[in-house]
Design a protein around this nucleic acid. Structure first.
Lengths: 194, 194
DNA sequence: GAATTAAACAGACAGCCTGTCTGCTTTGAT
DNA sequence: ATCAAAGCAGACAGGCTGTCTGTTTAATTC
């Protein structure tokens, strides 16, 4: 006799977990709800009791992955001193996390399409993008980062650049090159302090 | 009594055109083939005679838009002298073109999902991305652009950065800011020649 | 230039998939 | 103990894509 909040958390968790793995492998469109139900060990009725539709379940998966990304970044940043090295460490942690096959497919490739522009931006804003912008603001404020445009603009540029990096290097044999290219980009903003 | 090649071009053109508009407004998943058939004025049999499935029709639309993008860029570049100003002009033309609502939704947002990673990369490689990389290679070769990583890596970074720019500024009130942020980014690569 | 082949097209049809809907079970409140 | 509400079960309907057979129109062959 479990409490209601426990039951709720249990089935929601199973659904999100099963969906997460299937979405990662087959993609959103090619994942049948039937497969999710089997994977989660629940019935159709349960699923549609917790989520309005498949897209809402997908959003819940995105939410979870975004939280995990945040956690990974914050952990990587924890030991750093100085705004620039903090920014660099956070960015490297970001690309490392996004390089994971499952995360990449769900968060980078499919989320913009499935969630739509508005919800996707909102999600980003709620998590890693805000982190990135704040890091940039700090680094620009104390002069260790130089950019003639706005901090927000630079955050957009960097975010997009990193996304493109992980996508192009997907499954590549040189995971090291990705980090090199990214750090080379940072060097461009640091003026004459190598 | 039209020739076969004419008939073929006609119906294919009508389908691609109708699909293009519908995909732009409603997105790929929410566009019913029925609607495309009505828009194009052809029947189901005709469509599936020319395209294996909906995705293949979508790919044809992407192909067309990519060609238009190439044309726009090459026109913008035509009057330019010097590798750097050529690169800048081409990049601005690129973001201008991609800022169009329809192009954005189809090429930037949905194409990676619908075509899949491999086909999407191949498409990019066939068109604008190659143009960008060559522009960067030239500018790096004559020293007007400095970057400690590879030309290919920089092309990836710039491409991703520009994509992110147009997405974030979608429907924004300040279309000028987009260009400013992009040019600010270029300034970072130009060392001490302002 | 009649006959044959192949391409282009028409439209009915089947199978699949999502979301709904009604009913049942378990938990929580009174 | 009783009633309300949340959680869940599973059948079902409607819609959509792709197929398949048949028909028309162009090209080829003799």
């Amino acid at each position: 006799m479990a409490t209601n909040v426990q039951r709720r958390a249990q089935t929601r968790g199973c659904l999100i977990n099963a969906a997460r793995h299937l979405f990662a492998i087959q993609g959103y469109a090619d994942t049948r709800t039937e497969a999710i139900l089997n994977g989660a060990g629940v019935t159709r009725g349960a699923m549609y009791h917790h989520f309005r539709n498949k897209a809402e379940l997908f959003e819940a998966v995105c939410e979870l992955l975004s939280q995990e990304a945040m956690a990974a970044i914050e952990q990587a940043v924890a030991g750093q001193h100085g705004s620039l090295s903090t920014l660099k460490a956070g960015s490297l942690a970001w690309v490392d996390f996004m390089s994971r096959q499952d995360v990449q497919r769900i968060l980078v490739i499919e989320a913009p399409t499935v969630l739509g522009q508005a919800r996707w931006n909102a999600l980003d804003e709620r998590y890693s993008f805000t982190l990135l912008r704040e890091g940039i603001q700090e680094a620009m404020a104390d002069g260790s980062l130089q950019f003639s445009g706005s901090a927000n603009g630079l955050a957009i540029l960097l975010n997009g650049a990193m996304n493109a990096l992980v996508l192009r290097h997907a499954g590549a044999a040189n995971p090291q090159r990705l980090r090199q290219d990214l750090l080379a980009l940072f060097d461009c903003f640091c003026g004459e302090t190598p």
